[in-house]
Design a protein around this nucleic acid. Structure first.
Lengths: 148, 148
DNA sequence: TTGTAATTTTGTAACGATTTCAAATTTATA
DNA sequence: TATAAATTTGAAATCGTTACAAAATTACAA
């Protein structure tokens, strides 16, 4: 069976054409797309797809834990079809989001939440500058210093 | 000197009346307020304060690292005047945000980001159910089971 | 099959958070 | 005191998201 359909069924979601298309998009793109990225790309291939369906489907998938919601970017929610534990890094300049392996962070699964709290998800985010934007900033700073 | 004014100066920010009021609000409220929380409460005391000033000031404070921006909630950005390292938990039901000590999480400061990346901030978020909402959900589930 | 109910999708309109922008005000400086 | 620079303000515009009711599709029972 198609791995996307299987993934949906595993999470108790009936695999409609639209749901499969959206889930497949997420599983085949590791770019952490926004709602608009998903809508634009899929709409080009399925002209009848509506923005509302993308919103509806993403929140359905979220509720069934079939995807991961990234809130690292305050401007846009991003989605990740890879639900295996990993961290993320966002560049404050180009705003691209990168996967970061958890290995090395030391993170383990037991936060000191108050008694009675039920932890369902953990998100580890980093932000700063990616290599490319860091070079640009360094160059700009050097130039600035030169002219002072 | 007033600790709020001092905090602003330490971060290279000129302490205008509005900036001090907003920074003080953040430092005296550990409730992780939204822009609207801040505006509503301060506007009641300073009727001339505008929403735009709250937005402007918060992004100025953010750029100077005088506060911490919490993106844990996809619906609203929250702000934290406490810039000492700590994690956060958001209840998916009541959407309240709680501070969580880092001790016990094992987190250390060296993620395996690609070469050349500059990590500037780390955010550790948990979500799930708080004690109060968990009890309510358990009660609702018990009732449901009973009637089936 | 056929009819009926349940589910899903769609498009429009409304909503709410945030940004833009230019004018007004305040503060710093010569 | 005059002038420039910085800051604040309010209105309008923008953009992401939600609400909602109609249309289309799918599931199921007769």
């Amino acid at each position: 069976m198609d791995f996307v359909v299987e993934h949906l069924k595993d999470h108790g979601i009936r695999p409609s054409v639209q749901r499969v298309a959206i889930m497949r998009y997420l599983m085949e793109h590791c770019s952490h797309p926004t709602v608009d990225d998903i809508y634009r790309d899929l709409h080009a291939m399925m002209p009848t797809l509506s923005r509302t369906t993308v919103y509806n489907t993403l929140s359905l998938l979220e509720g069934k834990d079939a995807l991961s919601v990234l809130t690292i970017d305050s401007r846009n929610v991003h989605y990740d079809g890879d639900v295996k534990p990993h961290a993320h890094f966002m560049c404050r300049e180009c705003r691209r989001i990168f996967d970061v392996p958890l290995a090395g962070t030391g993170l383990n699964g037991s936060p000191a939440t108050p008694d009675g709290f039920k932890v369902e998800h953990t998100h580890l985010y980093y932000d700063g500058l990616c290599d490319r934007c860091r070079e640009e900033e360094d160059a700009a700073l050097a130039k600035e210093t030169y002219f002072i």
